[in-house]
């Protein structure tokens, strides 16, 4: 159909993203030695989501691609959130 805009990110950009990911991984490991109680899980989840977001946006080109893909991913995440929320109707009230 229409011609595709191809985005080519620079090596520097990729390297920077890689560094971010490695840093976050280090933090994930490091944080386990800090006693945060239930917040240990929270912290791990937040870091993991950040990493996933970075991978999606940069390595998987979501940031540069057509809008429809961002829309699709958002919708998928929304379904995921809804499923988790409903599951907790069981776990919170059991």
């Amino acid at each position: 159909m229409e011609e595709h805009k191809t985005h080519i990110s620079s090596y520097g950009n990729h390297l920077f993203v890689l560094l971010c990911l490695i840093t976050l991984t280090t933090i994930t490991v490091a944080i386990t030695s800090v006693q945060l109680g239930a917040f240990n899980t929270t912290a791990a989840m937040i870091i993991a989501s950040t990493k996933a977001a970075i991978v999606l946006l940069y390595f998987m080109h979501l940031k540069f691609d057509e809008k429809i893909f961002r829309f699709m991913v958002t919708l998928v995440l929304a379904i995921y959130v809804v499923v988790i929320v409903i599951t907790f109707f069981d776990y919170l009230y059991r």
């Binding site: 379904i79 809804v82 499923v83 409903i86 109707f89 069981d90 776990y91 919170l92 009230y93 059991r94």
Partner: peptide, 17 residues
């Protein structure tokens, strides 16, 4: 996606669910 629990009414999940 939202209705799977109807298979579990007797499983022991919460009344709210």
């Amino acid at each position: 996606y939202l209705v799977w629990g109807h298979h579990m009414f007797t499983s022991g999940m919460s009344d709210t669910a």
